[in-house]
């Protein structure tokens, strides 16, 4: 088995995309000084709302738009409680993750009419890039051909975010606010407004992540389908700090592990162990980074 096969690269990208989109949201919050652990629930909510909107409108793109809007709305709960009322963001996140699990399972029975897993030939998934005429291009064709446009978009977003944080006025201010909110406040910067913006943007990105998960990677919704990816995104932010490219690398590590697990499953590894692989690898990466950070005296803890 050659892991450098292009189809393997393709499956790494597939696995990475939802995680990196959510992690980008987590990163924005982290830069602004808000600890956002509610990514898991938001990704699940995004997946569900995207499928619901696609189901109701008959259009995958309306599904994406609906998922993004609905998840941004959902994240407003965190934004209001954690930023305006200074509630404990960790407890809020625990509650919101559980709430998303319950709400999606409940509403899918009400809206989609089934429990467990919803899939239907009528449910429109996102188009593939191959369908958009990319399949004849060498290398890019095999790698991206089977992917939705959101996959390259996610990577472009990472680069755009990195540039935005570095070079623009609002990016600079967001960084300052996260590092020393009192100082920022005394310079007349609106700390609360920037933080609300970051949390809502994270909600939108999680909505995009969920849409990619449910309408891009597959075309279905099943209960709890985010399956810990939101938590992996949280870890990626802890590993990458406030550097978008580092966060991307952490997400890619997870993507490689998941794709590899999938391959090994094909080679006879029991599914249960293959499923566990990405989490074990993520945890090991975290421990190694923690050990290194200890030596460098940069604690990972952002809370």
């Amino acid at each position: 088995m050659n892991i450098l096969e292009l189809t393997f690269v393709a499956s790494v990208l597939t696995a990475t995309t939802p995680v990196v989109l959510a992690a980008l949201g987590g990163l924005l919050c982290s830069v602004s000084g808000v600890f956002n652990m509610a990514l898991e629930g938001q990704m699940l909510w995004g997946a569900f709302t995207a499928v619901s909107f696609s189901h109701l409108t008959g259009s995958a793109w309306w599904g994406v738009a609906g998922g993004v809007a609905a998840t941004a709305l959902y994240s407003a709960v965190l934004s209001v409680l954690a930023v305006t009322f200074r509630a404990d963001p960790v407890v809020i996140a625990v509650g919101m993750n559980l709430l998303a699990l319950g709400l999606t399972a409940f509403l899918m029975r009400q809206i989609l009419g089934v429990g467990g897993t919803y899939t239907s030939p009528d449910l429109h998934g996102l188009p593939t890039l191959a369908g958009m005429g990319l399949d004849h291009v060498p290398v890019i064709g095999p790698v991206l051909g089977s992917q939705s446009p959101l996959v390259p978009a996610a990577f472009v977003l990472v680069a755009a975010t990195a540039w935005w944080l570095r070079r623009t006025r609002s990016g600079l201010r967001l960084r300052g606010i996260g590092q020393h909110p009192e100082a920022a406040e005394s310079l007349g910067l609106k700390v609360g407004a920037y933080r609300h913006g970051a949390v809502l943007a994270a909600g939108a990105l999680c909505g995009l992540a969920g849409a990619q998960l449910a309408l891009g990677n597959v075309t279905l919704f099943s209960e709890g389908m985010s399956a810990g990816r939101g938590w992996v995104a949280v870890v990626a932010v802890m590993l990458g700090g406030v550097r978008p490219l580092r966060v991307l690398s952490a997400c890619l590590l997870f993507g490689v592990a998941e794709a590899l697990g999938f391959r090994l499953q094909g080679a006879g590894l029991p599914q249960q162990l293959a499923d566990a692989a990405p989490y074990v690898i993520t945890l090991l990466a975290l421990i190694l980074a923690g050990a290194a950070g200890r030596r460098r005296r940069t604690p990972l803890e952002t809370a």
């Binding site: 623009t168 006025r169 600079l172 300052g176 100082a183």
Partner: peptide, 25 residues
């Protein structure tokens, strides 16, 4: 002191009153 530790000196000085050129600091 009220400095932003991870920003550069220049960023620290101009933040909140940044000179921009076509939207870029």
């Amino acid at each position: 002191f009220r400095l932003f530790p991870d920003l550069t000196v220049a960023e620290n000085i101009v933040i909140g009153a940044e000179p921009t050129r076509r939207g870029v600091v």
